[in-house]
């Protein structure tokens, strides 16, 4: 199972880099959905010996929510708002990838300062989680469309979730349900606000949202 875990983790990173590489918005949403599915499968490969219902429920919830429901919401927002598919990044393709690579290195650097927790499954989980969090932040920071920012937030959440998988067995299910619910509600409210912004400003570019300052 070790190889499967590593493969899934690499897929997660690749999805991040794909989004950073300023592809059209639709493709990015699909990449994040794909990332969500990969994450959903991770608990099964990380804890192969433990086949509890708890794990399966989490996996199923993850795949469903992150792989289908939330991407669906985002696609609907694109359709409703008739948004052009380009992402309008604030930095170029090369810079994006370059920064992404730096962040992967940073993730490994910070993870290197922390002792590896036992039963982690793979030594790559922590660095991948941290760099995914940071790349999510990078997407938020470097994208002009607020829909892309929501997407970045989703990537960030995926990173955190990757990390949470270390603890999958240790955490009570109720908390995880709460976490998932909150994330879902968060994205839902973000979607609603994006819709309002589109109606109010006639665009969803963050450049318009700079009236409040000092």
């Amino acid at each position: 199972m070790e190889h499967v875990t590593q493969l899934l983790l690499i897929l997660v990173i690749l999805a991040n880099l794909f989004v950073l590489g300023s592809h059209p918005l639709g493709a990015c949403i699909r990449a994040v959905a794909f990332q969500g599915i990969a994450l959903g499968l991770l608990p099964l490969s990380l804890h192969p010996e433990e086949r509890s219902i708890h794990l399966f429920v989490i996996a199923l919830g993850m795949v469903g929510l992150k792989g289908f429901v939330i991407p669906g919401l985002l696609f609907r927002a694109i359709r409703d708002a008739a948004i052009r598919k380009e992402q309008e990044p604030l930095i170029g393709f090369n810079t994006g990838l370059f920064l992404g690579a730096i962040l992967v290195g940073l993730g490994f650097g910070i993870a290197g300062k922390l002792p590896l927790p036992p039963h982690t499954g793979s030594s790559m989980v922590v660095p991948v989680a941290l760099s995914t969090v940071m790349m999510g932040l990078l997407v938020i920071v470097t994208r002009a469309k607020i829909l892309s920012q929501a997407l970045g937030y989703l990537i960030l959440e995926n990173g955190i979730y990757t990390f949470g998988l270390i603890l999958a067995a240790g955490l009570p299910g109720l908390i995880e349900m709460g976490v998932l619910l909150d994330i879902f509600a968060g994205i839902f409210i973000m979607g609603t606000v994006i819709e309002h912004i589109h109606r109010e400003f006639g665009s969803i570019s963050a450049h318009k949202l700079v009236n409040l300052r000092e």
């Binding site: 937030y153 409210i189 973000m190 912004i197 409040l212």
Partner: peptide, 17 residues
């Protein structure tokens, strides 16, 4: 209004992160 919308978006995004 547009200003409160902008504020809400910023609040939501920053606090969510």
């Amino acid at each position: 209004n547009s200003r409160s919308l902008e504020a809400t978006w910023k609040y939501l995004l920053i606090c969510s992160v």
